[in-house]
Design a protein around this nucleic acid. Sequence first.
DNA 1: GTCTATACCCCGATAGAC
DNA 2: GTCTATCGGGGTATAGAC
Lengths: 196, 196
Amino acid sequence: MAKEVPGAASSAGTFTERARRAQLIAVTTELVADEGYQGASLSRIAERAELSKAAVLYHVGSKDALIQAAYAHTLTALTSDVARAVQAAAPAEAPAAYIRAMIGHLGEHPRHTRMLIEALSHGVEEHASAERWQPLAEILEAAGVAGAGESRTVALVIGGGIDAIVREGLEDPDYDTAAAAEQLAALTAGSGWVRR
Amino acid sequence: MAKEVPGAASSAGTFTERARRAQLIAVTTELVADEGYQGASLSRIAERAELSKAAVLYHVGSKDALIQAAYAHTLTALTSDVARAVQAAAPAEAPAAYIRAMIGHLGEHPRHTRMLIEALSHGVEEHASAERWQPLAEILEAAGVAGAGESRTVALVIGGGIDAIVREGLEDPDYDTAAAAEQLAALTAGSGWVRR
DNA sequence: GTCTATACCCCGATAGAC
DNA sequence: GTCTATCGGGGTATAGAC
């Protein structure tokens, strides 16, 4: 699509370069979360960062690259948080820990949630979808909850269920996402998931 | 947002008016499904319909109104199809019928699926989300699968699971969505969903 | 009632001056 | 490194021909 960005890696470039990138990612995340993809125009981003539109483009290469960077930054916070919770749990409790951590993190950071949704809706490089369900499928198999032949669909359903619960919590603040997480976790542990 | 469209209802207006609207909705659906929301510009739509951009706008009022109309048209095809299948089933089998009809319809009409996804991702009037899960929640309660206190979350999880399965089938044609539907239907009937 | 022509403003992106 | 100027293209509004 677009040309390669000079400082694509977050660890490259000069001090000021990295600082600018970090600032731009922060501003973009906030703007995208609050106003949506379309509302986060380069002009508005530049305005908030106190730069010109062209200067922003100089640093990030293109709008899509900027969104991608903000997306990756946000996603890393989520995945590392979830991974920490999963690793701290015993294999049998890992699926429940995954569900709780996922819904908990996204419920506590609605801006992150909106950022991820907007980015995914607007042509962020979809990492094959397998990257989303495969880790969960492995967790499920290790817990003995689903066999190899069924773990993919079970993981997809749980992932989709998490998305739906988080979205609902976003639209209706009265909806108890923590209780929903427990309900989904109970389902995972229940007998319905594995054929006998 | 935008001004009211002259022939907003599909049954209003002149013969040519209705014909034009139908044609524009068809062209838009095809274009959005194949090229995405951004790829379906008014210029391209006008080009395919052999009209000028302004003429298109005359008939539909605005791009968002056009997308909304195409979305509603596509959604009606889906919901009427699913409703038919559900009504033909006994209450106890209704949840499974819902799941099969939903996944079956969307699997057979990938263009419809993409149209719905694109529209939902790009600011179509989200009908409160309740319109999505409430009908299913009622089906579940009638089937005795979920109690009143839990049917909302169960319906959300099933709905999200359906979405995830359909999306996966879109990205990976080798993925067996029919088998996944059966797996999800079996879960619904299983003991995992209801607390005892 | 249907459509063409035209003009407006904002968007993302590029070129070149400072 | 950062700016101004500019470009093509997007959605929209209006005037007026037929």
